[in-house]
Structure formats: C-alpha cells, structure tokens
Design a protein around this nucleic acid. Sequence first.
RNA 1: GGAGAGAUGGCCGAGUUGGUCGAAGGCGCCUGACUCGAAAUCAGGUGUACCGCUUGCGGUACCGGGGGUUCGAAUCCCUCUCUCUCCGCCA
Length: 425
Amino acid sequence: MLDRKKLVSDSETYLKGLARRGDYAAEVAKPLFDIESRWKELKSEVDGLRHRQKQMGPQMGRLAKDGEEFAKLRKEMGEVSGRVKAAEEQIRSLEEQRRDVLLRIPNLPHESVPDGLSEEDNKEVDRWGEPRHPVFKMQAHWELGESLGIIDFESAARMSGSRFAVLKGAGARLERALIQFMLDLHTQEHGYVEVWPPYLVRRHAMEGTGQLPNLEEDAYRTAGDDPYFLIPTAEVPLVNLHREEILDKDQLPIKYVAYTPCFRAEAGSHGKDVRGLMRQHQFSKVELVKIVEPEGSYDELESLRRNAEEVLRRLEIPYRVMLLSAGDMGFSATKTYDLEAWVPAQDRYREISSCSNCGDFQARRAQIRYRQAKGDNRFCHTLNGSGLAVGRTMIGLLENFQQADGSVILPDAIRPYMGGLSKLG
RNA sequence: GGAGAGAUGGCCGAGUUGGUCGAAGGCGCCUGACUCGAAAUCAGGUGUACCGCUUGCGGUACCGGGGGUUCGAAUCCCUCUCUCUCCGCCA
C-alpha cells in the first residue's frame, strides 16, 4: 500500500511512477483523489459536531432530568446525534472505498529499475559459471527422473491431476537434502533465524503481503465463510510474523529463513511448462525474509541476493542475475532481481529465485513499524527472496550434472546430505 | 464437541447503579531538582491514528473486532474472534 497522504499531495510524481508499470497502474489510483477530498470534508464536520456533543455531556449530567432546559438540550443534541450518525455512515463507506482502491494500487518502481513492460526489457547484471552445452544427447529432467526411478509424474497425475509429482527413493531424499542444505547455509553462515510457520493463513495475512486482493484466483483456499488460504510462499507467514507491531530500532534488521511447501493454482499459465517440475501446484521452497530500516534497504537487497546466489555457487549450477524492468515486477516490489539457472535441455536460463525489496509497501499493509525516536514511528522495509525454489534446483542439478550414460553426478556440497552418495543411477 | 471464565495504555491492574474516563494506582521509561557521581527521594512527563492551523497548539477517534440502545457507553444489549480452566475426543 502506498502512502495515501503523499499520493494525494504529490500525485503527479506518483502517477508518473506508477505508469512505468503500465497505464493500468496509474488508472487504478485515480478514483482515490475524489474519495479523499469528500472524506476530509465529512471528517471535519463530524469532528466539530462530536466536539459539541462532548462539551454538552457533562452539562446535561448536572441538569435535573425532568427540567425544561434538559428537555430542550436533549432535543437539540438528538439532532446533532442524527447528523453525526448519517455523516459517519458516509465516512465509513468512503473509507471502505478508499481501502479498496489503495489495496489494488501496485508499488512504485525504484529509480534504479529499468523502464519497460516485459521480460524483454530486463537487464542482465551478473553471470556465474559456464553454461554446459552438450556433447551427447541431453535429457530433460523429467526423462532423467523417470529413467532413474526417482520422479513419478504418472502416479501423481492419477491421484492429483496435472502439475504434481511424486518423488521416490533418492529423489525424495534429494528434496529433503536440498532443503536441509539450504537451511543450514542460511542459518549457519548468513545469520538468518529459522522459522517453521503455518501453511494456512487468514485473508488479512495474504493482504498484508500483497497476494490479495488482486491475485485471488491464483490462491487455494478452504471452503466456508471464513476460509484459510494455502500459502503461495513462506513470505506470507514470515512477513506477517510482526504484523501490527511497533518494533524497537535495535531489533532490526530481522532475518528469517523458512522451508515450506507452496501452493499455487497457476491460473492463467495454461500450456506453460506443462511437463516436469518447473511449474507445480505444490512445491518446496526455502524463503528468505528481512525486515529492516528504510535506510540501506537497497544494500540489504544486494546482500539478500548474494545469499541466494551462494546456494547456486555451492551447488555449481551456472546462473545469471536479471534486474527486472518496471513492468515485469510483482505487485509489491519496488525492485527485483531474478536469479536464472542454466537449464541445458531447454538451452536457456530459467528463473530459480526472485529477490525483491518491497520498501514500506507491505509494512504499511501489515502495520509493521519501528520506533525511530520518541514519537517518531516509521514503517519498516521488507525484503524477500527464494533461497531457493527446491524443485527448480533439482532441475538444475539433474540436468547440469547428467552424464552420457544417463547417470547424474552429485556436486560435493550436497553429498553429506545424501549420506555420502555421489551419483544417481 | 460440551461447560465455565476472561480480553482495559510498554507491563501489572482499578473502573460494570451509563455523564466531568484516554481512562485511578503501581511498575518500567524520559526530563528536571538534590549529589563530586550514583542510589534513594521529590517534581513533571511518558499510547496509536487521523484532521486543521502548524517549530507549537487545537480538535476527533480508539478500553479485543463489528453492530445496537441512548441526548450521552470502557460501563447496558447482540454478535464475532482470541485466550484460559474442566470434561470428551484425537496425533
């Protein structure tokens, strides 16, 4: 959520910034200005009337209840009360409308973010490792996984439909090994606190991080009037850990890491990545979240990104770093780096991690503040990044380390987590 | 699932015959006095959000959330959520 007061007082700058995401973004914000001015007018009227009510209260208490003066005052104050109620109803309605608009306005892109509306406009900022080009017929990971007997898409489809996978034997162990490896790295070497959060959350938690109200069709939820939402990423529970809190300055920065399964309906991606582990309704992810002071939050983004990159380096998977263009970023982000791992069978890089600074956008939605000085409470900045998506990491391992005979050599870093196993198949 | 109790400011805790209660008192914290300094003591201050003029001041809202009764509600009524205790069940 953007700062309503600034949005109104400096609307030109804000609308211009929003338009960098596409014309729609500025359009969404437009109704706000009229709502805000009507709201202010009513608000000051009601404040005045209530002031009068408050003044008269004690006086009426002192008067004789059967006196003439009391009857007169009661009549007058009854009228005031009626007007207050009517105006307050209008105020409530305006505030609801205002909130609806504000919740649907995306975050403002940071100045360092390149212009552009699509993937094509993203800028490569770094690259690591040598992409492996095949001297033999390279197999896609789903072929490898099935021939090695470690991934079973068919059984998964029979019980759950498309976009599910069953991991078996060394495959299941590898999933667990990768999670363990990532958690150990981030907790022991990067200073994150490990968290085991709920996988089901209430609507307001999803609104807090910006998944709702806009992306409702992509979220799974339970039945009933007061549904739970299945988290699409651990970012949701991790950021909401401090909702409605005023933190002490010396508590910051807060750094959390959590492994969770993630659930996504993948509405609107029909036909994309229909095979393999690339795009699943349920997948594992180790997520990094930081809650920090506004000063230096972009430096924190750089280090967060490095923390995620380190996983790929240890696993010896070639990758590149993309700085996303304004129009390609997610709803809540001011600036996003995608890490893209090399996928030999597709002969291209594919997203394996997305690291964003959300500025105070989520903090304002979730009411996460910190005490800067006495009487000066400010919203924190929140950051998040995958460290990493486990399924996609498995793709990276299987495909990049496959051998001509269909076996897969495991990189050194993961072997201790596989009980010393050095090779699949 | 059944029965009961509760939810007040950073914390503890008053307030429930409706009126001067944003709310006693204590603790914590900040400032000043005393002191060489500290402790103790004394005095003052100490929530969040919004509106208006604006170095400061004035106003409004908020006593778990929402709704209602009333000229007026922390105080009465309804409802929801959460917490605790006991019983049952379950992992």
